[in-house]
């Protein structure tokens, strides 16, 4: 869950960074400040041209085009797209649009007509002086608001980053603590198991009784020193060999095999788990001798394990 949460936060974070990575506006403030500059230069050009200065007409046309271009740029600027429905602003914008559109034929027309129309143009331009100023100021307002907005977004982004980092830190700390605890537990478990094994093997090694471990196939898997003394076989000779052929007299082997088969198929027990039972065993030399045996059965990891504890009772019977 922590991973999911973290992934979600990161996704959000990267999306926000992507948004900030590419700019959607150029220097709007510059365009806004230039609007009034271009306006006054146009007014000045009209004035110069109306003083009968023929060379100034070309300059007037250029100044008009520049102001026109600036106006269109600003009107289209993304910054204004966020503008609320502001009646005063709308009216000012419409007014400037009207004057500019009306002036286009005059500017593009013959020079004589343009010169004749200059006083009217001057009056029109004077009339939009306030609207131009309104829009420029409004633009600065919006620009300031946008800057604030952007700053707030960046602050939020930084806070979010901090939060993500904090969450990550907490998650990693918890994970580290859990891992350390699990490691310690595993080490303790391993130690305990080793100790148990050591004790167990000590018991098996020093036992006076023979201890023989066999599997379901009757193959000897473990065999202690006492068993070596009783049967004459060494560990090396007997481990991996069929127990019945090595230790059970020939005439008892069929009964032993039948008993094993019965137990493995039906679970019926005669000797296994029956406590001490007396029977005859066979020494490496072929000598037969009486033993007392107790057999227990376990299933270890799905496999049958038969453990026999066995002692030679020749002396006891003789006595």
């Amino acid at each position: 869950m922590a991973i999911g949460l973290t992934a979600l936060l990161w996704l959000d974070l990267t999306q926000r960074i992507d948004k900030l990575a590419t700019s959607q506006s150029d220097n709007t403030q510059w365009t806004i400040s230039q609007l009034e500059v271009d306006y006054f230069r146009l007014v000045l050009a009209v004035e110069t041209a109306s003083h009968d200065d023929l060379g100034a007409v070309g300059d007037l046309r250029t100044r008009f085009d520049i102001f026109y271009s600036r106006w269109r740029t600003l009107a289209r600027a993304e910054a204004y797209a966020l503008l609320p429905e502001d009646a005063r602003y709308k009216a000012a914008q419409a007014e400037v649009n009207r004057v500019l559109d009306a002036a286009v034929p005059l500017i593009d027309g013959p020079e004589a007509d343009l010169l004749a129309g200059l006083p009217a143009l001057q009056a029109q331009l004077d009339a939009i002086r306030e609207p131009v100023r309104t829009i420029a100021l409004r633009g600065l307002d919006i620009f300031a608001e946008q800057s604030d907005q952007q700053r707030r977004e960046i602050v939020a982004l930084i806070l979010r980053t901090g939060l993500v980092t904090l969450v990550l830190l907490v998650v990693l700390t918890i994970a580290a603590i859990l891992m350390i605890a699990a490691g310690r537990r595993a080490r303790e478990d391993a130690q305990r198991i080793e100790e148990v094994n050591r004790n167990l093997s000590m018991i098996v090694e020093t036992s006076l009784d023979a201890i023989i471990v066999a599997d379901a196939e009757g193959i000897v898997r473990a065999y202690n020193p006492a068993a070596e003394a009783i049967f004459g076989w060494t560990q090396a000779e007997i481990i991996g060999q069929p127990m019945a052929e090595m230790m059970i007299p020939a005439h008892h082997r069929a009964a032993h095999a039948a008993g094993m088969k019965r137990f493995l198929t039906t679970g019926e027990r005669r000797i296994i788990g029956a406590g001490r039972v007396q029977m005859e065993a066979c020494h490496k030399s072929g000598r037969r001798f009486p033993v007392e045996v107790s057999i227990t059965h376990e299933r270890v990891g799905g496999r049958h394990v038969f453990v026999s504890f066995l002692r030679d009772i020749t002396h006891r019977l003789r006595a």
Partner: peptide, 15 residues
């Protein structure tokens, strides 16, 4: 995408 920056916009001079 690197061209979508204010610095490049400023260099995109018109007229």
């Amino acid at each position: 995408p690197e061209y979508k920056s204010e610095r490049i916009y400023a260099r995109s001079i018109w007229q």
